[in-house]
Every structure is written in structure tokens, then in C-alpha cells.
């Protein structure tokens, strides 16, 4: 029985192009009103997964359920136009021969003229482009085009909104602001949405729940906090945030012995004792402390304004990262004192 708490459920769907499996037994569940995000490197199948949900691709296996009804499975394929799923395309796909208002009104077929007009002005007000109603797409800036595309997709009140790399065509300064704007708009419309992106900052800013994808399936479907602090696989640990793995041996459920000494913090130990593990050290786990007996040599540094990210080299040759307030300015080659500050450990068995 499908769980009716969820608006959208993907139940181990598989999609193949000839020989290559693009989406591989992928599952997820999204609650009404949530903004989900598929995050992953290019070629991980995230866009194809989105297109399966939209109905532009057929699935060879598994089921997709929307509001308790199966819309796609091996036997069944509900046509895209019958799913009431809106989509914002990466290139926006605005209709160049229609004005902004006409673009927004396009999906409101079957409504009276007044209803259409009311909804169009409502949407234009929501995206803050009332002045641009009569302009044509080529007369709008990239950011404005993007918002029109969003308004067009939201206007018919779709049950679910899909956005494919919606910010990738915008310059970086604009991206951040628009990202927050879009989140506000979606929340005001109480829309449920899935966004595909390869940019984790974007994902962190906009999404309530994020699925990190690799090789056609979701590695971890979780909040941004958990993805960063409690990654469930090496891939997620590497892909989200910065950090290095340091080799060590498990002492017991709360301690790992490494070349930096005993590191402690609670963690899900892969064994009782004495097995080899790799411990994830984020740059903010490694603190700079002049009084510390632990020393490491500065190998490279990247100035980041308030902080400096040091790449430090340990006597064995392993490297760790450390984020240090930027008034602690040390030249390359100098040994500095470090101290570990961990409360939760992430360790994977070797």
C-alpha cells in the first residue's frame, strides 16, 4: 500500500537508454509542501530521473506514485500532459512568440478570461515583474526570464513542480539571490517541488530535503545538516563539503586511534575493536592552537576572507584541512600547532 502521507513516491525505478542504465532502482518519498533536491555530479542520472517523473521518459521498472495514484510503471505511462506536473526547464523554454503574460497564461486553458487574467496578474505580482507583462522573452534579462518560466509553471497550480538546473544559466551573484526568491515563491504558493542541481550551495539554500545521487540512484536522502555531518557513504562524504579521510583503528565505540592520537566522539562503529577505518575530518574539525603539542606543516593556503583554509601535511605525509581565523597568517613551510575538536565521528571501514 502506498503511504498516503507522501505526495510523491518513487519506488525503485529503473530507466535505460539502450545498454546504459541511467536510473538504477531509485527510490524517494516527498511530503506535500516540501522542496526536495536531487544533487549530484553531471551524468549521475538526476535530470533523467526528473524527466521520468515529468513523463518525458518511460520507466522500465518500478513505480512512480503521485498523490496515491500510480502514474508510471513498467505497464503504465500516464502522458506528461495529464500528470499536472509543472516543469521549469534549464533553458527556460519560454515561447519567444508570446509576451511574458501570454507565456504565463498558456497553461490556463479551459478557464474564463477573467480567471486567467487574475491568475496572470497574481503570478506577475508574486515574481515582482508586473511592469514586464507585455515584454517578449528576448527583451527580458536572464533572471527575469527565469522567473517568468517559474510563474508559467506555477500558474496552473500543478500538484508538483520540477526544476531542472534552474539557476545554471545565471551569473553567480544573481544565483544566490534568486535561489532565496524562488524558495519564498514556492513556499508562498505552498508548492511541492523537486529541483535538480549539481551545486551544493544551491541545494542547501533552497531545499528542505536533499538526495545525493550517484550512478543512477540516491545515496542518501536527508537534510542538508545530516548530509554534511552524518554522510552515510564515502561518496556523500566526498561530494558534500570539504574534508579528508585519515586512516585509523577502532579502539571502542567512542574512540579511534590515528596518527593524530586518539580521536573521540560517538559514532556507529563498524566493529568492536581493532578494525581499520577511515575517519572523515572536515576543515572545521581541525582547530589551530599554538600551544598544542600536535604539529603540522603548512603546505598550501587559500585565503577566504574571514578564514584561511590551510592544507597541512603530517609527518607520515598524509594531508588534512584546517579552517583557521584569518588573522592567524602562517607562511607555507611553517609548522603550526593543531587540535582536533570532534563530537561525532564519521568512519568507514577500510
Amino acid at each position: 500500500m502506498p503511504n498516503t502521507d507522501y505526495l510523491l513516491e518513487l519506488n525503485s525505478i529503473t530507466q535505460r537508454y539502450g545498454e546504459t542504465t541511467v536510473v538504477n532502482e531509485m527510490s524517494l518519498a516527498l511530503q506535500q509542501g516540501d522542496i526536495g533536491c536531487l544533487l549530484g555530479p553531471s551524468g549521475c542520472g538526476k535530470t533523467t530521473a526528473l524527466r521520468c517523473i515529468a513523463g518525458f521518459e518511460t520507466v522500465q521498472n518500478g513505480t512512480i506514485t503521485l498523490a496515491g495514484k500510480t502514474i508510471a510503471s513498467r505497464q503504465l505511462h500516464l502522458a506528461a500532459e495529464k500528470r499536472h506536473i509543472g516543469m521549469v526547464f534549464q533553458d527556460y523554454a519560454l515561447f519567444p512568440h508570446m509576451s511574458a503574460a501570454e507565456n504565463i497564461a498558456f497553461g490556463l486553458q479551459g478557464q474564463s478570461k477573467q480567471q486567467r487574467q487574475r491568475r496572470v496578474s497574481e503570478m506577475l505580482a508574486l515574481i515582482g515583474l508586473e511592469q514586464s507583462a507585455e515584454l517578449y522573452p528576448h527583451e527580458l534579462s536572464g533572471g527575469q526570464q527565469q522567473r517568468i518560466a517559474l510563474a508559467r509553471a506555477l500558474a496552473p497550480r500543478p500538484r508538483l513542480l520540477l526544476m531542472d538546473e534552474p539557476f545554471s544559466n545565471l551569473d553567480i551573484t544573481l544565483r544566490e539571490r534568486l535561489c532565496l526568491d524562488v524558495r519564498d515563491i514556492l513556499k508562498q504558493e505552498q508548492a511541492t517541488a523537486i529541483i535538480v542541481t549539481h551545486d551544493q550551495q544551491e541545494a542547501f539554500m533552497i531545499a528542505d530535503v536533499i538526495g545525493v545521487m550517484n550512478e543512477g540512484c540516491i545515496q542518501q536522502w536527508d537534510s542538508a545538516y545530516n548530509l554534511y555531518h552524518r554522510p552515510n557513504s564515502r561518496f556523500v562524504a566526498n561530494f558534500v563539503g570539504e574534508g579528508v579521510f585519515l586512516h585509523g583503528d577502532v579502539v571502542d565505540g567512542e574512540r579511534v586511534r590515528t596518527e593524530l592520537g586518539i580521536i573521540d566522539g560517538e559514532f556507529d562503529a563498524p566493529c568492536c575493536a581493532d578494525c581499520g577505518v577511515d575517519v572523515l575530518l572536515r576543515p572545521d574539525d581541525v582547530l589551530h592552537d599554538d600551544d598544542s603539542p600536535l604539529q603540522a606543516i603548512v603546505k598550501a593556503k587559500a585565503f577566504r576572507g574571514a578564514q584561511i583554509l590551510y592544507t597541512l601535511s603530517l609527518p607520515t605525509g598524509s594531508e588534512i584541512l584546517s579552517l583557521v581565523p584569518s588573522h592567524h597568517n602562517h607562511p607555507i613551510g611553517e609548522p603550526i600547532g593543531i587540535r582536533l575538536d570532534t563530537d561525532h565521528l564519521v568512519a568507514f571501514r577500510v
Partner: peptide, 13 residues
């Protein structure tokens, strides 16, 4: 792409 945009807004191909 145009067809898909139209489909996502409820039009048949």
C-alpha cells in the same frame, strides 16, 4: 523542448 514545455502545461503533443 517546446513540445515538452507545452506538455508540462497540459497540452497534448
Amino acid at each position: 523542448r517546446a513540445l515538452e514545455a507545452a506538455q508540462s502545461l497540459g497540452y497534448s503533443p
